Computed example of a mutant assay.
Amino acid sequence: MDDLYRENILDHYRHPRNYGELEQPTIVQHEHNPLCGDQLSIYLLVENERIVDVKFKGKGCAISQASASMLSEELAGKSVDEAKAFDKQTILDLLGIPIGPVRLKCALLSLKTLKAGLYGVNLVDDDEDRL
């Protein structure tokens, strides 16, 4: 069964869903994982408290990028409150394989970026221009 999930992760990495930028997003959030260099930007179009479109762009390992692709599929059509309820287990369930402590930050980068965007905060910010 793990092989099936691994193939799914590689498919999302090689052929990411919802990859790109929205022309006029309601929310844009960029985050990165300084330990391994993964970067991710999420673009959300929110209308009437519902996510009507989502895109992401990024670079990094297969886990971080596949996680973002899978999360983007889950977000479309969800209410903002439903998206805010997503948690670590949501991402781990999407990935479907055990994630060790070294790769956990990679797997959760998409969730971190989503939450920071939805709550309007920078969870980690090394750029003084954005402070």
Rank of each mutant, 00 (worst) to 15 (best):
L94F: 13
E73G: 15
E74A: 14
D127K: 04
E128Y: 04
A116V: 03
E73M: 14
T26V: 10
G77F: 11
L108W: 06
I27E: 01
C36K: 13
P34F: 13
I91H: 11
E74F: 08
E21G: 00
E128A: 14
E49M: 01
R130E: 14
D129R: 12
R14V: 01
E128D: 14
K115N: 06
Q24F: 05
L109T: 09
S69I: 04
V80Y: 02
D38F: 09
R6E: 13
R103S: 06
H32T: 08
Y119D: 10
H15K: 08
D11L: 14
H32P: 00
N33V: 12
R103N: 08
L44K: 06
G117A: 06
N8R: 15
L123G: 07
I63K: 06
G120E: 01
F86C: 11
P34S: 11
R6C: 00
F56D: 09
S41K: 13
D125K: 12
H15P: 00
Q89V: 08
A116D: 14
L44A: 08
G60I: 10
G20Q: 05
E47P: 00
R103C: 04
E74V: 09
E21A: 09
Y5V: 00
C106E: 04
Q29S: 11
E21Y: 01
E73Y: 04
A62G: 01
D38H: 09
D93C: 10
M70D: 05
G37V: 05
I9F: 13
L118F: 06
D126C: 00
A83L: 03
V124S: 08
T113S: 02
D53N: 15
S64W: 02
R50K: 15
Y5T: 01
I9H: 06
L108A: 12
S41R: 12
A62P: 03
E82W: 10
S64H: 11
K115E: 04
S64I: 03
M1N: 10
P98E: 15
Q89I: 02
Q89N: 10
G20M: 09
P98W: 05
R50Q: 15
S69W: 01
V102G: 00
V54H: 04
N33S: 12
V52A: 02
N48R: 11
P25N: 04
I9T: 04
G100A: 09
R130D: 10
L111Y: 07
S67W: 09
D126A: 07
V52S: 11
S67Y: 08
K115P: 00
D87E: 07
F56I: 10
G100T: 04
E47K: 13
L108F: 11
S110N: 01
D125R: 09
N48A: 14
S79L: 05
P101N: 13
K115F: 01
V28K: 13
K88T: 14
F86P: 08
F56R: 08
T90H: 13
H32E: 15
D93F: 07
D53S: 14
H15F: 10
K112S: 11
R6N: 05
T26E: 03
E7W: 00
E74K: 15
L22N: 07
G77V: 05
L111E: 02
I51L: 14
K78P: 01
V54I: 14
K55E: 07
Q24M: 04
E31W: 02
Y43S: 12
E31F: 00
Y5D: 10
G120T: 02
Y43L: 12
Y5F: 15
L94Y: 05
C36I: 09
D87A: 05
T26C: 05
I42F: 11
V54Y: 03
D93G: 09
R17E: 07
D2N: 13
